[in-house]
Design a protein around this nucleic acid. Structure first.
Lengths: 181, 181
DNA sequence: CCCGTTCCATACGGTGCCGTATGGTGACGA
DNA sequence: TCGTCACCATACGGCACCGTATGGAACGGG
């Protein structure tokens, strides 16, 4: 967002803006710092605060993300400018942090390291793609309501299902929606 | 991409550009038309040309997309400008076409309609997210080589896995911890 | 009452871009 | 040789934006 339109949208002027921030980049840096904290660290802390088993955390995380009542997503704006020199490092950090957390959740579910990592990648990719769909073709997504919850359930089931082939059998069964034998 | 930088990058000038195209938007529209055709219709036709069972088609599609040797992606640029008035409809069309095709593949695999649709959504979301990761944090993705193929296999397995029992309204059980928005 | 500090507004130069106007340049046929 | 036409370059006006310069209110302390 440019600073002149931003200023008028806030009922202020450019002059006042440049008194508070030395430059446009300084504002961007500050906003990115906020975003890092609020969009990742805070979410993880909130999830960890509850005394529930890891599969419940993962379930909450997924359903929260895939059944969006009105997901206001700064992620989208930043992903769109992923090449911006200030955005890129912040984005990389956040991605790494989120992916790391999801990986540990899968590990806690009994997935061996490599499989946990792959599953986390898949899960996070699905999240990012969901965001894109939300913007580029929202009419193709299930409407908020029962269809949306059913979809979230479907995603949870697909992501939490252990696959038969690979060795070192993960343990924990998935409770909740679908009773996997 | 602006037309002045584009012109110099092509060793031409702006004047010559405006002889071939009436405006910048006209170039964009032409490029979008090309993209629709090459990135979707052509891919589907190529897949349908081979005389293989549907799960093999799906497998080829997924592995082709998730084990990218050097995926040159126009998709990314367009997703980044998803709000552009010319890009948005093209993007919606392509999304709908791709999603429809993936859905029919899942249907041919025996998934009932609603589940096929959900699975297709998940698969396509995963693809879109993969694209984003490729740009915003490529170092977190498996490197091209065996790790990459293993990951592609993992994704195929996760997406093709039949889930037991899933029919008939799973009714998500939000156990402990409350909703925590 | 004067002065400095804080906060905001107006005005200006500079830049990158879009689109147009206009002026070549070479090929080719009459 | 001359005119025409496809193609390209230069030059210009206009716009949106960034960042700076400068001129104030408002206010509190000496």
């Amino acid at each position: 967002m440019a600073v002149e339109p931003l200023a008028v949208r806030l009922g202020a002027t450019k002059g006042s803006f440049y008194w508070h921030f030395r430059s446009r980049d300084e504002l961007i840096a500050a906003a990115l710092q906020l975003w890092r904290q609020a969009s990742t660290t805070a979410v993880i802390e909130r999830l960890e605060a509850a005394a529930v088993p890891p599969e419940e955390r993962l379930r909450q995380l997924i359903t929260h993300v895939f059944a969006p009542p009105a997901r206001t997503s700064a992620d989208l704006a930043l992903l769109a400018d992923a090449d911006h020199p200030l955005v890129a490092p912040a984005l990389a950090d956040v991605t790494e942090q989120r992916l790391g957390y999801i990986t540990t959740l899968f590990r806690q579910l009994g997935f061996p390291p490599a499989r946990a990592r792959r599953r986390a990648l898949l899960a996070y990719s699905a999240y990012l793609g969901q965001l894109q769909l939300l913007r580029s073709a929202p009419h193709l997504l299930p409407k908020p309501g029962p269809a949306s919850s059913a979809y979230a359930d479907h995603v949870v089931a697909a992501l939490l299902a252990d696959q038969p082939s690979t060795n070192a059998a993960p343990t924990l069964r998935v409770t909740g929606g679908t009773a996997t034998a």
